[in-house]
Each structure stands twice: as C-alpha cells, then as structure tokens.
Design a protein around this nucleic acid. Structure first.
Lengths: 338, 338
DNA sequence: CGTTAGCACTCTCGGCATGAGAGTGCTAAT
DNA sequence: ATTAGCACTCTCATGCCGAGAGTGCTAACG
C-alpha cells in the first residue's frame, strides 16, 4: 500500500531524477528537500517502494531510479498540475496568428511549437476529414499536350497531377472536359466513382483516371502525413549519449514512419493519454514515454499529436503543452471548417 | 612535386582509409596491396607526402590519414572513374517509373534514392522555375463565408489559401470574382501586380491580397523547399560516434536549413562540384565533403542536389550517383515541361 | 513501535602504472 | 635508390587501488 509518506518520497525521487538524470540516494534526498526525516528512515521507505515496484536500483549502492510503475502513479495522481505559462501561451498564439491558412502549415507550425514548449520531440498529423468527396476539377494547360489536373476535394483539400494527352488541346477543350466531369462527379466519394470508363472519350478517360488515382491517394496518404520536430531535444538527453541508442531512436523518429509506431488512434475521444516506457508498442521506444491527444472535432476534420521523450521527462510540462496545443488547433479548425 | 609513385601511394592510403576509417601504416599498406616496395621505402615517400600536405599524422607512431589536400588531388585526378552499376540504374529507373507526377514527389523520391545509392545523406531541392507568372485562379466555397483560393502559377505550380469573407457568397459570385481576376491578371509576374487595390470591391480585394501573398511566397519558398534523406547513413560512420559531433551534424542537416548552408548555387552550369572539408562555408561541415550538382535546364525549370558525407567517403560512388541522378531528373523535367 | 545513529559492506569511477602492439625516423648496409 | 635493423614514441586495453556514495542491518532511543 502506498502511504502518503511513501508517495511523497516517490514524488521527490522522481522530481530529482528528472532534473539530474542520476540515481538519487537517501541522504541526497533529505538534504535537497529539507525533509524532517532522517536518511535511515527514507532508506526504509525506499526499500518498501522498491518491493512494490515503484522504483529501481541499478545495483547495490547506487541511489534509486524511478521504475515505470512509479512514473505511472506519479503521472496519474502525484504530479502537480501545471498550466503552460501565460507568456508562452501568448507567444504561441502570436505565431499562429501570423501563420498561413493551410492545414499542412498548421500541423508544421504546431509540431515546431509543441516540441519547443514540451522540450521534447513532437509529432502533429495533418488534420484529416473522415470523408473525402469530389468537389471541383480544374484543367490548366501547361504546354503543348500536357495539362495540370487540379482537384479540389471536400474540406478544402487540394491534389494535383500532370497528364499528357496524345495531342495538344486548347484551353476551351480543357474547360469543356473539366465542366463535363464536374457535372458528372459532383459530391461523389471515391467509392461512388464508376470503375468503368469505357464510355468516355479518350481525353476525359485520362483525366478521370487521374481523378480516381488522386482521390484514392488522398484518402490514404493524408492520414500518414505528419510533421515531426524537436528530435534534437531528445537526442541531447544523457540517456542517448550512447550512439547506438541514439540511432535506434532516430530509426523510429522518422517523419515517414512515426505515425505507424505511435499509438495515435488509441484514443477514445478527448483527453490526453500517457504511455510510459514499454507500454507503447515498439520496443525501440521502451526507454521513452509518449503523450498522445487528438484535436479537432471527432466527427469532422481531426488529427492527432504526440510528444515523445525519455521516460525521465517533465511530464507536467509536456502534458500542459499538449493540452494547450489541442485546444488551440481545435479552435483553429473549428473557425475554418465550421 | 607529386611523382607517380607518391601519387599511387597516396591513392592507396586513401582507399584503405576510406574503407577502414583507421590510420594506415607503411607495413599494413605494403601487406594489403602486394606492392613491390618495402615498408621503409613507403615510409620515406609518406614523409614526403606529409611535407607537401597531402596526408596527416594524428601523432607519432600512428599511421597516416589523408589530409584535405590529399582528397582534393585524389578526386581530381587519381580516383578511378566509376559508373553506377547497371543494376541499380535499373532499380532507380523503375522506382521513378511508378512514381507520381508531382515535382515535389520527384524531389522526395530523388533524395531517398540518391541517399541510398551514394550511401550518404542526400538533398534534392524541389525544381523551381526562374520566373513565376499568374496563370489561373479558382475559387471554391468551403462552407458559409469561407472559400478556398486555388492559384495556378506558370510551370504547373499550385498554391492554396483559405479566405474568410465578411458574408456568405454563392458559387456564382465566387466564379465571378475569379473570372474578373483571371482576366485582369493573366500572365503577370509578381512584380507586375498592382500594389494598389483600393479600386477593387471588398471581396475581390481579399482574394487579390491572397494572390499577392501566395505569389510572393511561391517565388521565395520554393527555392528553400528541399528533401533531405539518409542522415542515418552519415551518423552511422565512426567519425560521428561522439554524440557531440553527431548533434552538430544534425543541427546542420535539418530539412529546413540545409539549403542555406550548402553551396547549391555556386555552380556555373552543368557538371558536378566537390567541396572537401572546410572548403564549404559552415564550419559544422568541416569534417564533411559535399557533392553538388544542378539538374534541369538552366534557363527553364531547374533544381539542385547534393550528397553530404564524411570527408572519408567513397567519392567515386557518390559522384556517379549524383551524375546519374541529375541526368535522370533532368530528362524527367524535360519530358513534362518541354 | 516508529525512528534514528552507527557501521560494515558493496559497487562505481577516476587515476595510475604496465605491457603489448603498431608505427615512425634514422642510420648503415646493400 | 632501396632496404634491413633498431631505438623510440604513442595509443590502448588491462588491472589495480582508493575515494565516494549509498545501502542494509542492528541496536539504541523516545
């Protein structure tokens, strides 16, 4: 049973360890925190904490190190609640104010800012709408027989592709093709697109194929698209001083692969989830903790974000950063997508 | 003066050092290469090479290490010419064949493939046209009073931005605005856009501002846009076993900053340039060499690529990879942009 | 009974000496 | 001009202290 006193000691151990990255001993703890307990007593309590699996012992005669279970209870109940300082909130809000209006750009800026605020690595996925419908098509001649297909999908998503016709088409012809397809396809989702295109004239067939391809890609790709920033913050931590570990981390924290390893979709709905140590799938992340949250409206357009750092991270800081960031991005999405 | 024999010895030193990353001694050199010279003779020649600055000496009684000047002459005249193996050429061609048709995608794939082929880090900038002209504008309603501005620029470049009007506009009204702007702005470059917009109705003024903003951004941003891959390849090398060095490198090799530090624009025209050690500006790159080339037609749409690795790299391999890649991407661009 | 002082014990880590190994530079012989 | 021989130098791995930090146990204390 975790008595109050033991909980307090655990809390102090974690605080010290988070700061110094070094095992903390009974005497050092008593000294640093002007506690009214002798080192001997603390030692006794530490022994209990160790029995119960909250802390570890690298070897006899080193101080104690928080175990994953210790972090767990710390995050859940011991940790002091913290809000992102007003000042940084202001800075962040300001940065977003003068940013563009592209969802990809938001994600990008979001990742940068989140990494900075959390002092760790951060991932923000590009917000994605759950449905993907045909909205509008534009054909623009580029030169000779090559034209640019500009496809606008629901939720202001944009895709493009070049097509090469077998002969040169005038802009009027191109507009005609676009107009006919616009009339035929308006509002359709990918599943509602006709797979059979034999009835179409050859030029329209080419464009139609491009549309199908791009809609399929849009449905797929956007979920994977994610922005990753601040890996340096993590790599600088002493736990990654060994290059082997650093490379291992770098393997996982790659812009193109993170989304596959982070438990981004494990969230029921609102709220922030914390995965500590080996609680998250990949064993490359066993020394790391991941903080995940979704943002945006769950029914409509939404995305996910995560902070990744060593298990020895400042949880309250990272969590408050994530919390603030979700609300900021959510309201941003709201204001543009209803 | 660099006699034939000394040149040969220098060449062998570099070959061995590139492979093993360890100082090479006279005896080891004689042994590995079945040379018909005794270690003592080699030592004498080595002493000369050192005097002349081609090789270095970490300390008495370690083997010799190539100096930057040594690499220089090696790359320029000693190095055996090498072509990318037919087989990998095939593989690469195949990968591009089944890739999309977006310039950004090409750059991305190019960087990945180049990094792989060169065994180092690779950067490929997104191809950029030297001029940037208004081509077409499309306005698509997203919801209520928010619309998506889709701006097509010359060379099939696409920009987008959301705008929020003070009232809801019908699709007809939007089309009208687009049509009027299309008529007024067709073919203009950014410089030719009128800075004064007071004469326009309020809705058009909003869209016009977006157009100006996006065209300015397009002219600027595309040059910076670059894909970076294969940093791991470099980080794995023993010269970066020390985490300090690794972090230093990581600082420079960031997707958003590489283009500023690499000498990408230093090229007169065709051909591949090699910058060895501190020949390239940033002192963070003093232990690295950079191979740079431009691709595309110099007058029309073009981009740059680079390979970055330790000075101890396989130059012939990297150079042949760059050479092949430039020709591949150039012909790809040619076929789509005339 | 909870708390604490005292103490022996353990483990790490930095410093230091040691010896093997690799390589050089010089000199003298070929 | 080339090479064998040799003394010398420098690194690196190894092993060996001793200091320092911390623990666990026991016995004394309030």
């Amino acid at each position: 049973m975790l008595t109050d006193r033991r909980a307090q000691i655990l809390s102090l151990i974690i605080q010290d360890y988070v700061e110094t990255a070094e095992p903390v001993g009974s005497a050092a703890l008593a000294r640093r925190h002007a506690i009214r307990l002798s080192p001997a007593t603390i030692r006794n309590e530490m022994a209990r904490l160790e029995e119960e699996g909250y802390i570890d012992h690298p070897h006899t005669s080193a101080g104690r190190v928080p175990a994953n279970r210790g972090y767990r209870v710390y995050v859940e109940s011991l940790m002091p609640k913290e809000d992102l300082p007003r000042e940084t909130q202001e800075t962040i809000r300001h940065q977003f104010h003068q940013a563009g209006r592209d969802a990809g750009e938001w994600a990008h800026l979001g990742a940068t800012v989140l990494a900075q605020a959390a002092g760790n690595a951060a991932v923000v996925t590009v917000p994605r709408a759950d449905e993907c419908r045909y909205k509008h098509l534009e054909l623009v001649g580029v030169h000779d027989n090559v034209a640019l297909v500009v496809l606008v999908l629901s939720r202001a998503r944009l895709r493009q592709q070049l097509v090469a016709f077998s002969r040169a088409l005038t802009q009027e012809e191109l507009s005609g093709v676009a107009a006919r397809l616009n009339a035929a396809l308006d509002g359709r989702s990918f599943d509602e697109l006709d797979a059979d295109d034999q009835s179409l004239p050859v030029e329209e067939r080419l464009v139609y194929a491009a549309v199908r391809e791009q809609m399929a890609a849009a449905a797929q790709a956007e979920y994977d698209e994610a922005c990753l920033e601040g890996v340096r913050n993590v790599l600088m931590q002493p736990e990654f001083a060994d290059t082997r570990r650093a490379l291992e981390l770098l393997e996982v924290l790659d812009e193109h692969t993170v989304t596959r390893v982070l438990p981004l979709s494990m969230l029921s709905d609102d709220g922030v989830a914390v995965f500590i140590g080996d609680e998250n799938g990949a064993e490359e992340l066993s020394g790391c903790s991941v903080i995940v949250a979704r943002y945006g409206a769950s029914g409509a357009v939404s995305g996910a974000m995560a902070v990744v750092g060593p298990t020895r991270m400042r949880y309250s800081r990272s969590i408050s950063a994530v919390r603030y960031m979700t609300s900021l991005l959510s309201s941003l999405l709201d204001s543009y997508y209803q």
